[in-house]
Nucleic acid binder design. Structure first.
Lengths: 249, 249
DNA sequence: AGCGATTTGTACGTATGTATG
DNA sequence: CCATACATACGTACAAATCGC
C-alpha cells in the first residue's frame, strides 16, 4: 500500500520543492503508474502523518489539491479513494465520437507505418531545435462508419519504444496512456484545435471525401515541454465529436 | 479599503458555509463589484487576521483559492493584488479562435434578443421536467472576419438576472463568468461537442454560407446539475478553434 | 436506535523560510 | 541589514459524517 509511495517520494522530493507538492507528485505517480487503481482506498491522513515525516496539514494540502484536480475523491468518515475512471477527465482519446444515445462509439485503429517526419518549421517551435521527429500513421475507423486519419509526431527517442512493440499492440494502444504508464511521462495539459483542412492538404494525403476537419492536439508535460503532436483528419460525418473539460470551481 | 468586505462578508457568511469560503466570496464580490479594481493592492494576511474574526490560516486558504482561480496574484514581500485583466484565467469562452501567431482573436458580441425557447425533448433530459427555458440569441463577430451565431439556453430563473442587465452589459458579458461571479453558481465541468449542423437547421436559422459547424456546450455544477446549454453555429473559416484542457498534474 | 471509533473538514495559533524594497 | 509580506510547515482542537457493534 504505502510502499508505492516511498520510492516515488524520494524521487519527487529530490528536486527541491515543497513537501506537499512532492507528496502530491508521488501520489499522482502511484496512481498513473498503476500501483493504486481507480476505486482503491488511499491511506488516511493519520496513517501518512505517522508513516511519513510530514505533518497532518501538509498531507491535507496534498490531498486537497488532488481532490480539486479530480484524481481523488474523499468523504468524511469513509476515507480517500482514487477517483473512478468515469469521474475523471477526458480519458485520453482526443477523438471520441458519440452515438445517438450518448455513448462513445467504438474505434478500430489500424497501423499504416512510420517514417522520419518531413522537415517542418513547426517542429523547432514545438520540440526544440534539432530533435529528430518520427511520424506514425494510423487510420481509425469510427464504428466502421467512417475513417479518421491519425498522424502522430513524437521525438525519435520516444518513438523507438513505441515502434518496438508488437504490431498488434501498436495498432490498438492509446499512445497517451502508454507514455504515461510505461515511460512515466506525465501529461498535464493538452491543447487542441479544430479547423478546416485546406484543399491542398487533403489532396496531398490522398483523402477521398471532400472537406475534412483537422483536429490537432499538442500534449505538454507539467514543465510545458511538448510530448507529442498529432493531426487527425476527419471526413464529413453525422456524429458529434466530444470534448470535455473540467475546471476549477 | 477593508470596508468593502464587511457588508459582503456578513452576507456571505449568513448562508452557513465555511469561513474561508465566505471570505473568498466576499473578496470576489468586492472585485467584481468594482470596489477593488484590477491591479489594486489587497489587504495583507496580517491585516485581515487582525481586522476580521478569522485566523491567519483561514485567510491564507481563501487567498490561496483566489490565486488558483486566477483572480488574485500574490508575491512574497510585495503583497496581494487584484489580477490585471489580461493575467486572468483563460477566460472561459467556449468559442475561441486563434490568429496566425497563436493569439486569441478578439470577439465582438451583439445581442439579438431573447424569448421562451421552443419545446424540445432535450430540455427535460438536461434541465429536468417542467423547467421553463429561455433562449438568448447573440451573434459573435470573430475579429470581424466571420460571425458565429450563439444561442444560449438557461432556466427562466437565471435568465431573469441576465436580462435585467443593461443592454451594453448583456452584449459583452461572458455568461459563464457572470453566473460564477455574481450568482455564485460554480461550474465545475463542461461538455462540448462538435458536429456538422444539418442542412435543415441552418436553413431554418437563416444562416447564409454553406456547411456550418455546430459547437454545443453544456455546463454542469459540481453536483452535475445543468446550468446552461448553448449552441454555436460556425461558418466555414480559415481559423483554428481552440480547446484547452487544463488538467491534473 | 444509540454509542463509540474512524476519518475527513474546518479552524486556530505559531514558527520559520524567503523574496521584496 | 531590517521590516514587510507571502509561503511553507507543524501541532492541536473540534465538528460532522460514516460505519460497525
Amino acid at each position: 500500500m504505502i510502499e508505492a509511495i516511498w520510492a516515488r517520494l524520494a524521487d519527487a522530493q529530490s528536486g527541491q520543492r515543497p513537501k506537499y507538492q512532492a507528496l502530491r507528485a508521488a501520489i499522482v505517480g502511484a496512481i498513473s503508474g498503476g500501483d493504486w487503481m481507480p476505486g482503491e482506498r488511499l491511506p488516511t491522513e493519520a496513517e501518512l502523518a505517522q508513516l511519513l515525516p510530514y505533518s497532518l496539514g501538509t498531507i491535507q494540502k496534498a490531498y486537497g489539491e488532488l481532490v480539486k484536480s479530480g484524481l481523488v475523491v474523499r468523504a468524511r468518515g469513509r476515507g480517500s479513494f482514487v477517483a473512478p475512471v468515469d469521474r475523471r477527465m477526458s480519458e485520453p482519446w482526443h477523438c471520441r465520437f458519440l452515438a445517438d444515445d450518448g455513448t462513445i462509439l467504438p474505434v478500430y485503429p489500424r497501423l499504416l507505418g512510420h517514417e522520419v517526419a518531413a522537415k517542418d518549421p513547426r517542429w523547432a517551435g514545438l520540440f526544440g531545435p534539432q530533435v529528430k521527429i518520427i511520424r506514425i500513421d494510423r487510420t481509425i475507423s469510427i464504428s466502421k462508419e467512417f475513417e479518421v486519419l491519425n498522424r502522430f509526431f513524437v521525438a525519435n527517442t520516444l518513438a523507438k519504444s513505441l515502434i518496438r512493440l508488437p504490431r498488434a499492440k501498436v495498432e490498438t494502444i492509446n499512445f497517451r496512456v502508454f507514455l504515461t504508464r510505461e515511460l512515466g511521462l506525465p501529461i498535464s495539459r493538452t491543447r487542441q484545435t479544430i479547423s478546416m483542412a485546406d484543399r491542398r492538404t487533403w489532396r496531398r494525403l490522398g483523402l477521398r471525401s471532400r472537406p475534412h476537419l483537422l483536429l490537432e492536439a499538442i500534449a505538454y508535460t507539467p514543465d510545458d515541454d511538448v510530448v507529442y503532436f498529432q493531426e487527425n483528419y476527419i471526413p464529413p460525418n453525422p456524429r458529434k465529436l466530444l470534448f470535455e473539460s473540467e475546471l476549477r470551481f
